[in-house]
Design a protein around this nucleic acid. Sequence first.
DNA 1: CAACAGAATGTAAGCGCATACAGTTGAGGG
DNA 2: CCCTCAACTGTATGCGCTTACATTCTGTTG
Lengths: 364, 364
Amino acid sequence: MMKASTVYDVAAHAGVSIATVSRVLRRPADVRASTRERVLASVQFLGYVPSASARGLAARRTGVLGLFFPGIDDEGDSAEVPFVQDMSVEIVVDIPDSGEVRPPNLYFDEVLRGSEREAWRHGFALMVGVGRGTNPAEMVNDIAGRVDGMAVLACSVPDDLLDHVSRRIPVVLIAGPRRGDDYDHVSVSNTEGMRALTEHLIETHRITEPVYLAGPVDSPDDAERYLGFVQALTAAGIDAAGLPVLRGEFSRIRARHLAGEMLAAGGLPRALVCGNDQMALGLLDVFGPAGIRVPEDVIVTGFDGIEAGRLSTPRLTTVHQPMADLGRAAMRAMLSRLQHPDQPPITSRLPVKVLLRESSEGTV
Amino acid sequence: MMKASTVYDVAAHAGVSIATVSRVLRRPADVRASTRERVLASVQFLGYVPSASARGLAARRTGVLGLFFPGIDDEGDSAEVPFVQDMSVEIVVDIPDSGEVRPPNLYFDEVLRGSEREAWRHGFALMVGVGRGTNPAEMVNDIAGRVDGMAVLACSVPDDLLDHVSRRIPVVLIAGPRRGDDYDHVSVSNTEGMRALTEHLIETHRITEPVYLAGPVDSPDDAERYLGFVQALTAAGIDAAGLPVLRGEFSRIRARHLAGEMLAAGGLPRALVCGNDQMALGLLDVFGPAGIRVPEDVIVTGFDGIEAGRLSTPRLTTVHQPMADLGRAAMRAMLSRLQHPDQPPITSRLPVKVLLRESSEGTV
DNA sequence: CAACAGAATGTAAGCGCATACAGTTGAGGG
DNA sequence: CCCTCAACTGTATGCGCTTACATTCTGTTG
């Protein structure tokens, strides 16, 4: 690998000045064709790759956008990867129901995918960071120093840190509630989606006393969804305050427990509206084997539109949120902000889609 | 956002030299506690975030590792994301079997997750790039200029480009065959895994004429797997050359067609060994509704260990490859190379796990 | 053939930081 | 009270590139 070559090396080899080398790479049209080709030949010959650090410093922009997500807390396996290991195979009999395997990460995957796509589409590279238990502050600060702007999942970064980095680069918040009024913000129509779904249950299926299976109390997304649930009920003249709310914590496991308790207690509501798909799937896990028919005995709905809900039996009625688009919209907002630093804060709410499937409709 | 503050601003505000500011951030122990606190207060006050470009230039290393993947070709929707859109909800009746939704990407997601984790664990940031139809060369070159080392999925980058960038930074190849002998390389035990699975079918289920459902002809992974298949047969005294091989192209759709054709032709083999899970699932898609019992009438196995294979009916026997570990191992190899530039090329083969489930065992 | 407008290229000044080295300070010993 | 040495801090340089500006060509026109 030797010492990497620089503009100086290329310039010397091609018999031009470093400015010309730079121009060949940045504004080819400004250089005579013959010169350009000579320089490019030298670039090729020397294996020259421009240093983004130097470019970033000189041009005062890095050409990189950042994306930060809070970590999955339980990702604690610091286990070492086997480093060099040959031809080993293990044969295991894999029993069903091994629990929930990496559940909510799909969300991150999708947002990341959309972000990556949109960033490169606009000529920016993407840097990603997933907060681990250890010091998200350091990571965020680190990323902030490397990028022209960064998107951050709501609630993943303390306010003061956010203020700090936002003095250097624009910050876009993804999902969750607006925080302050100074940040650009992209989110999905949680409330509207849940309201539409609930209205459907009320109007089409004559549900009058649905039970809501809620996420963590501090989840702003769940709060928005619950709001939509309440709005639909209220609009139909139903007193939402009188209906029980179960606390499922967005966990499939927890939902199974709750399902078990309900069965034990004997009383099942006509419809269970869940704050996310994982919990809805947890209910299905229990109802099926217990002989409870869905949707004949109880209607179950979710929220998110994850793949597993499309593969479950019965398939899960849910509200699909466009996760990849969330990422793309976040990048777009940042780019827009970079171009027009003084425009008013952007608020982008993406549309959701209610997917009616067998867990509420019977057959579709 | 004003103009971002620099070391100079902080130094002036704290009444010290820029060297001291730098030390406070990089080697706090070298600075008297009282001075340190004063500087940190100024950092806080001014909202100072160090420029990674400047640091990278001065320190001659970026502290970033890169990961490049080939694009999903069909990802051609350049559609614009709705940018600002309020409260829109669409209600759709979602019919089953909407085809295959983003199939092979799980692989990328997992590798990325592992890479991200391992990079940060060692104090490096991660930059990701997914090649689009447009000019992967530019992307790779761009990334190469921004990082201290990069990992690349096999076959995603032309040889000459790889040579070019590897003159500047270490490059690690992920999966596929070794290319040349100069690059570090991490992969999984494709051959050994498939061999172990096939041996199991032969020994436990007395399969003597399994049919292999192959991937694309130019897939090195599939070639390795097929090799394992052949090895097991040969070891058992079976002439693999005499057995038919179907070309499923790693596609679920294509596998369905093939399944249809087999049914139409009347003859179903006792066991179908597939080069990946997607194809195996494609077979199940057809066999179930057609009244073919799996595994009683025909055994079906896959390869990869994707989530969908755990949710199918029957659940799919497969060979699980540790995708996240692949990413982690790639990062590890790079870090090792950065520390010891002159060590011999690393070759790391990760272990796989044969998962016996209902599609071959009946009940487990 | 001279004069001149562009086009092409060169010159030079930073961009913000790390760090070798030089200089300063303070504590302890003589 | 001075000297020594270690701990601490400041000075100065350069990392590799972009870019405003100066300079040199080139081809045209009078």
